[in-house]
Simulated scan of single mutants.
Amino acid sequence: MPPPCSEDVVLSCLAQHFPLAHASLLLGRGDDAALLKAGRPLCVSSDLFLEDVHFRRSYFTPEEAGHKALAVNISDMAACGAQPFAFTLCLGLPPQTDMVWLDAFYSSMAELADKHGIALAGGDIAACERVHIAITIWGGISPSGVFLGRSGSVPGDCLFVIGTLGLARVGLRMLEAHGRSALRDWPCACAAHLRPTPQIDAGVMLARAGANARPPALMDISDGIARDLRRLLHADGAQYSQTAPQGPGAVIRLPERLLHSEVRRCAEDNKQDPVREALIGGEDYALLGSCAPDMLAALKTAVPGFTHIGEVTAEPGILCNDEPLEDLHGFDHFDF
């Protein structure tokens, strides 16, 4: 049994991985607040990452937990076309936390932060029964001055995704069923769930493309296209209603060949429709957006992983491969 944690031990471990000085900070950790360098509008986003809600220590290594906790926040910046530069970390830890686990957790998070030039500006620690992680992240909008929001889709716009669909859902299912032995047979799916890759470069490219045209509408896919596409289409204020849907709507095409082979294999093994599984898959952290038709060819060429999947329609409702999606709803934390 490892000795109980103390605040000084936890902070000392953190300091080995995150420097106090950083180009994004005027004043780093140590005072009651930090000072960020901000000469332009800022994007800010927050996420919780809770043990036995968002991850399980039974099959997440500490490195994977540290990576994913920060990656999901970076993905929010990608969805706005913003470049992240600082974050705060609030951490609840069980009193008997193994310091080897904590060191590995910090190390992986610091590696991802360093890759994207992000400073740790501060945070808080407390004792909890399980590991609780809360991160707030700041980003600067692109030099072009373009912020990519969810609103702005109009009938005739092209719908697109950047990244894989449904793969993280397969990883979650296999890890829940088989633990880490699932990595042997489902390596890509498990990696998609354990260590997602935020699409920062793609978000910045899309913001740059919007500088001289109507900017794309954009969001990241955290709860599955079946739920998130409705959020994109109704971001201007129209409320989605299953009984009385209002426009705009969408027609999307998602052939099985566009899905990862592990998504198709999992569906085949379980006698399920792979497209349906991809539509409800959460935690993909791919990007979903719409753009004017005259931007489509340029974006296909410029943005790696860009896939045109359909169009926005004036008529309400969503069709995928000519089938209505009214019975698909994606992930909901409160759907018990």
Rank of each mutant, 00 (worst) to 15 (best):
L36N: 14
P143Q: 14
S144P: 00
D114L: 03
A121S: 10
L89A: 04
V161K: 04
A110F: 06
V53Q: 10
F160A: 11
G92A: 11
L50C: 14
D52M: 08
I118Y: 08
S108Q: 10
A79D: 09
G140C: 02
A69S: 15
D157W: 01
D76T: 04
L89D: 06
F55G: 11
E111S: 12
G92W: 06
A110S: 15
A79E: 06
L36W: 14
L36F: 10
Q83R: 09
P84W: 00
C43G: 09
M109S: 06
Q96C: 01
D103C: 04
H67P: 06
R57D: 01
G39F: 08
D98H: 01
E63Y: 13
H132L: 15
F160L: 07
G123P: 10
A79G: 12
H116G: 02
F85T: 02
E111A: 14
D47Y: 06
E63V: 00
R130N: 13
L102N: 13
L35V: 00
D52G: 05
D114P: 00
F147P: 02
S45Q: 08
L42N: 12
I137Q: 13
L42R: 15
S46P: 03
L35M: 08
L42S: 09
H67Q: 09
A79F: 03
A119E: 15
A86E: 11
S58V: 07
L70Y: 03
P94L: 03
G139Y: 01
F87D: 04
L70A: 06
D47M: 10
M77L: 10
G92V: 00
F87E: 06
R130P: 12
D157C: 05
F147M: 08
W138S: 04
L148H: 08
V44A: 09
F87W: 11
I125W: 09
M77V: 01
S45K: 14
A119S: 15
F55C: 11
H54E: 13
C43M: 15
P84G: 03
P155S: 07
L120W: 15
A82G: 05
A126Y: 15
I74V: 14
K68H: 07
D76P: 04
S144A: 12
A71V: 00
G39V: 09
D103I: 03
P143L: 04
A82V: 02
V44L: 09
D114F: 03
I125D: 12
P84K: 02
V100A: 15
A134K: 14
A86Y: 05
P41F: 05
T88G: 11
T61F: 08
H132R: 15
T88M: 13
P41S: 10
A127E: 15
T61V: 02
G156I: 02
L91Q: 05
C43E: 11
